[in-house]
Simulated assay, not measured.
Amino acid sequence: MRFLLRLVSPLLGLLIAAVGAVTAVEVVTAWLVPTSSPLLVPWPTWQAAVAGLAWSSGVTRGVAIGIAVVGLLVMLVGLVARRHDVVLTEPVPEVTVTTSPRSVARAVGHEVRSHADVVSASVVASQKKIVVKAGTLDPPDEVRTAVRERVDAALTRLPLARRPRVSVSVAATKGVK
């Protein structure tokens, strides 16, 4: 989502800047040579078409609703694309410490992969939840409790302000032991 925001924001900014530049050119041209025809935009024709519209007309309401929907979509993309940091405990009241969910997932993943019976592991973390999926050649039920203990130990060592929920699943993988 952040990629979409990084793509849309400059394009929207360039569009607004272009509309502003064209408007400035048209206004200056109309002031300097009032009898000339429009330079880039046929605004007299547009002015005549808009002059016949009322605020209560369906076209005006449709355009207003369309602009509102586009504005809400841009705002939604901006809100969803914000950075979701994991808050750590404050060393002093004046300092706020955060880390990325990727860093938390990496720390937990190293701990899970260091277990001798785990052959593969995938960890996804957010501020509220950590999901661990591990693969083993041994019976999954035996390894699951050990992996859960390792995840709990890793989270205890991390100075997290709020402890996230943890979901651990272990599946048997095919292979020769």
Rank of each mutant, 00 (worst) to 15 (best):
L40K: 05
S126I: 01
T23W: 12
T96L: 13
D117C: 03
D85S: 06
V86P: 04
T136E: 11
W46Y: 13
V95I: 13
P164N: 01
L73S: 14
L160F: 04
I130Q: 02
S103Y: 04
A154V: 02
S126E: 01
V59M: 11
V123Y: 05
P139K: 10
T23K: 05
T136K: 11
V168F: 01
T35E: 14
L4G: 07
E111R: 12
I130E: 00
R157P: 01
V28W: 03
S114K: 12
M1Y: 08
D85L: 11
I130K: 02
A68C: 03
G20I: 06
S167F: 13
L155A: 07
V166A: 00
G13K: 00
L32H: 15
P34D: 13
R106A: 15
S122C: 01
R113K: 14
A125R: 00
S56I: 00
V92M: 11
G71V: 10
V22E: 02
V33L: 13
A68I: 04
R150G: 06
D152W: 03
T60Y: 11
A17Q: 04
E142Q: 12
I65N: 04
L53Y: 05
I67C: 10
S9P: 03
P34L: 04
R113M: 11
L15Q: 12
K177I: 06
V63A: 11
G78E: 12
A17N: 06
L12Q: 14
I67K: 08
V168I: 06
A107F: 08
A171S: 15
G175P: 07
V33I: 14
A48R: 11
L88Q: 09
P139G: 06
A161G: 01
P44I: 01
L155G: 03
A48L: 04
P10H: 06
G78W: 15
A125T: 02
P101V: 03
V170P: 06
K128P: 01
R82H: 10
A51D: 10
S114Q: 10
E149P: 00
K174T: 11
E94Y: 02
V63M: 06
V80Y: 12
M75C: 14
G135P: 12
K128R: 14
V124D: 03
A24P: 08
V19L: 12
L39P: 05
D138F: 08
G52M: 02
V59R: 13
V22Q: 00
R157M: 00
A107I: 08
V123L: 00
A153H: 07
V112S: 06
P91M: 06
P159H: 07
G62Y: 04
